[in-house]
């Protein structure tokens, strides 16, 4: 039986990370939890892909990081959106909405002659 949880679609990880950080700084583990919780545990983040993605996004200047204390009082690296990251989020979100709408249109199209 197929796993009812969905792996993230190619290319959506950046968008989901940016969205997760929209409400404030989070460390990597909290980003995973935020994505899983807000998707009702449907989306499953590949944890091994998360950190390279975060570091790449930091290089792009979309996020910046700072060491701080976690809820469990441990030292953790917190990521925060930059203004460039907010712009990127808006762009990626718009693109995603257009893509989803287009795919939906294709799926709803009736076969010719039907």
């Amino acid at each position: 039986m197929a796993d009812s949880r969905a792996e993230l679609l190619q290319g959506t990880l950046h968008l989901l990370i940016l969205k997760a950080l929209e409400r404030g700084p989070l460390h990597g583990y909290a980003i995973v939890r935020r994505i899983e919780d807000t998707s009702d545990a449907f989306l499953r983040v590949e944890e091994g892909s998360l950190y390279p993605a975060l570091h790449r996004m930091e290089r792009h200047g979309w996020i910046e990081s700072e060491w701080g204390l976690s809820e469990s009082n441990r030292r953790a690296k917190f990521y925060e959106l930059t203004s460039s990251g907010r712009r990127q989020l808006r762009e990626e979100q718009t693109l995603w909405e257009r893509t989803a709408k287009a795919i939906d249109g294709v799926l709803r199209a009736q076969p010719k002659g039907a």
Partner: peptide, 16 residues
């Protein structure tokens, strides 16, 4: 060292 600390924190949180 920072990369190791960050990954170690993640594993420790999941294990906790």
């Amino acid at each position: 060292a920072e990369i190791d600390a960050e990954l170690e924190f993640h594993l420790a949180e999941r294990a906790r």
